[in-house]
Structure formats: C-alpha cells, structure tokens
C-alpha cells in the first residue's frame, strides 16, 4: 500500500523545524511502523538526503525509547501499544500520516523526532527508589507482601518511561509517570519508610523540570502503552497531601505519616472490583 508522510524535520536542538512530505509507495501491511520508516530512510540515503532521525531500540514495546505523535495521537492509533509495536495493517492505502515529536518544555527536541527525556530520570533520582545498601538486604521472604499489593505494584511498575503521557497531556504534565512510580513503591512494605517524602520530592522535581499540573483530563491514560491508570495520580496526590498535613516534628517531619495520614481511610478501597 501507499502511505504519505508529513514528518517534522529539525536539524538540531536550536535549529528551526518544518514539516516535510514524503511518499512511501510500497508499504507492506506486515511491516511495523518503524520498519516502514526504515524503508523511507533507506530511500532518502540512496537519494543522498539525510534520513529521518527517530529513537528506537527494543522494537518490542518494552524499552520506552520510541515514540512520536501520529496524526496528533501519541504512539499512534493502536491503544495500549507503542509505535514500534504498531503494524501498518492498522492504516489504509493512500493514508496521509503526520509525524510530530513529543512536545514539552521539559522534552527539548534534539533532532527530527528525537527528544531529550532526561527530565524523567531526574524525577526518579529525586526519590523514585528504596534506599537500601547493596548487600544489606534481609532474607527475601522475611517481609511478606500480600499478593494484591504485589500485583498492584507490578501494574504501576510496568511504566516504560516513554513520555507519551507527557506528550498527550494538554498541560504537558508528568503526573501519570510520577504517579506510577509513587504507586509502585507506595503499595509495597519496602517503600513505606520513605513514602511520605518520596511523593513530595518527586512532584516538586517534576515542577522544577517544567512539567505542568494535572487537571484530570485523562489523555495520558488513553495513550499509555503500559496501561497505567489514572488512579496512580490520585494516589500520588494523596501521598503529597498526606506529607503536607502530617503532624511530624522538624527532626523526622514525615515519619509519622503512614499511621496519622488523614488520607489513610482511602487506602482500603472497599468493595473494589478487581478486573
């Protein structure tokens, strides 16, 4: 089949960019989207032009390296899938596709469809971990973790750090990404000691990086290839507020939180339907 592409070309971070139209006449429906771009790039090189720069590595939806907007939708039309997992059979002959890079103050464009997402690393660095020395860990089964908590943690930990949530959010908010990590560590016993401080530090770092606020618009959840749910944002907010309202002393400002948090009540999630 024949595909027309309008791709954002930008030589470098400071260079101006523009859309350039290309045509790929012989696309097979079995190609992945990125393989279709490989074919285009091959042609461009043969014609002596510069290939379109786009990030990818695993090409199976797990590394989070790929990603751009296809016709205004992050990672393209296929739900719960990265663009590298999207195959051309989801498009039709003669279709025109506009490819645009993630856009956010915190994601400067490096070239064409490649952006710098190191801001997400710095959010993790600001508190997205459990402080545990190498070699100092207790016997693994000494800390029992309820299956439901483990499953919840896994659901949230599935985030691949692709940044599509930021790209799709009208406010360029990293709430879903941050909430996912806060939730992953927040539901596990291992994450409790640092839990109150963690959410506040991470959300403050996100603000410092220039990400916007969350207005519960929900586009992030819709485009998230890892199926992260909006509830992680509520949980993150809960932890942040909990830490702000915690009755703690200067010395150990947040230590008391898990027990005294006014938000404690909502941890229970009574009568919840588990899908």
């Amino acid at each position: 089949m024949r595909i027309v592409l309008e791709i954002w070309r930008q030589k470098g971070a400071s260079a101006p960019g523009r859309f350039v139209t290309y045509e790929v006449p012989d696309v097979s429906e079995h190609m992945s989207f990125l393989e279709m771009l490989d074919v285009l790039n091959r042609r461009l090189v043969e014609k002596g032009e510069e290939p379109v720069a786009f990030d990818s590595d695993c090409r199976e939806g797990i590394c989070g390296m790929c990603g751009f907007l296809v016709n205004g939708v992050a990672h393209g039309p296929l739900r719960h899938a990265t663009i590298c997992q999207t195959h051309m059979r989801h498009f039709h002959d003669g279709e025109t596709l506009r490819l645009e890079p993630w856009r956010a103050a915190a994601f400067p464009v490096l070239k064409d469809l490649c952006v710098d997402r190191s801001a997400l690393d710095r959010i993790i660095a600001s508190g997205g971990y459990v402080t545990i020395r190498t070699g100092s860990a207790p016997e693994a089964n000494a800390i029992l973790v309820p299956k439901r908590a483990a499953d919840r943690a896994m659901e949230a930990a599935a985030c691949i750090g692709c940044g599509a949530c930021v790209a799709a959010c009208p406010n360029a908010s990293a709430a879903l990404f941050t909430g996912a990590k806060v939730t992953h560590l927040g539901v596990l016993p291992q994450g409790q000691p640092e839990r109150p401080a963690r959410a506040l530090r991470m959300t403050e770092q996100a603000r410092a990086e220039g990400f916007g606020h969350c207005a519960s618009i929900g586009e992030c959840e819709a485009v998230c290839p890892a199926g992260i749910r909006l509830e992680v944002i509520a949980r993150m907010n809960r932890d942040v507020l909990g830490s702000l309202f915690a009755r703690g002393e200067e010395a150990e400002p947040f230590a008391a939180l898990p027990r005294t948090s006014p938000m404690r009540f909502f941890e229970a999630e009574p009568g919840e339907k588990v899908e």
Binding site: W8, F19, L69, N71, G72, V73, R98, E100, R103, A104, A105, A106, A168, P170, N171, A172, S173, G210, F211, G212, H213, A215, S216, I217, G218, E219, E221, A222, V223
Partner: peptide, 23 residues
C-alpha cells in the same frame, strides 16, 4: 503556567478520550 509547559504547540493534536469540559 500551562502555556510554559508546552511553549511550542502541536501542529496537529487529536484528543482521544477527554471531554471538552475538561479542556
């Protein structure tokens, strides 16, 4: 502040699930 978070707007942006009210 929201405008500062995305100084360069998308040429084309297509909302998927969000309500107009929310935007």
């Amino acid at each position: 502040a929201r405008r500062e978070s995305r100084p360069v707007p998308y040429r084309r942006y297509a909302p998927t699930v969000s309500t107009p009210a929310s935007r």
